[in-house]
Design a protein around this nucleic acid. Structure first.
Lengths: 100, 100
DNA sequence: ACTACATATCGATAAATACCGATATTTGCA
DNA sequence: TGCAAATATCGGTATTTATCGATATGTAGT
């Protein structure tokens, strides 16, 4: 991981809601209801649920998630019309190691 | 560590120069000249050297360092008219663990 | 093809952050 | 005491980020 990458990750984490999204996604089954169409969290959580939990507008949260994916913190998987987001543990570990 | 603390730390890290300061301070003897008045780096590096290395204005860097201390990333020690800054490894470790 | 729903993108404005020069404060030394 | 050096703070402007509503796009089912 280089400086620029680490800075982009930090920018994503420098907001309370985004930081909380990272926490929520650590334990999806604890923080979100089961999804209508998929009965597991293997690909994470559907964007709508994250939006609802956040209490912010759909566009804001969509933007958050897109940026968090861009910087590598999240991985997105499409299933039909839904976008599922989950933590990218590999990058998170890299980032943590980079700081130490 | 709680969310707010972690967000404040992230804010400090979301800037290339500040991120580099964290790196520079990981190996002071490698990145800075020995100080005029103290022949070790036990309390870190004098603010002037950090300022010079950064190529930013003195006021900007002083502000950086002050905020980085406020959020716990750095520890400041005064020796006479000099302020020495070093990494606060304990907080950095906490932060890294918090993310995982 | 049409409708409904999920998500992404756009454009605008408000708020926060970055950064500088100038100035104040602190400290050591002549 | 008075000067010089180191650092901190202040005030202002430029830039970036936050956030929304509106709109576009994409997908599934009727």
């Amino acid at each position: 991981m280089d400086v620029k990458e680490a800075v982009e990750i930090s920018k994503c984490l420098s907001n309370q809601t985004r930081m909380q999204i990272m926490e929520w996604l650590r334990e999806p089954e604890k923080n979100f209801p089961p999804h209508i169409s998929i009965d597991h969290f293997d690909d994470g959580v559907c964007a709508t649920y994250i939006h609802e939990k956040s209490k912010l507008s759909q566009s804001t949260v969509s933007n958050y998630l897109t940026n968090m994916e861009k910087c590598g913190l999240l991985v997105m998987t499409k299933h039909g019309k839904w976008s599922y987001y989950k933590r990218n543990e590999a990058i998170i570990t890299d980032f943590a190691k980079y700081l130490l």
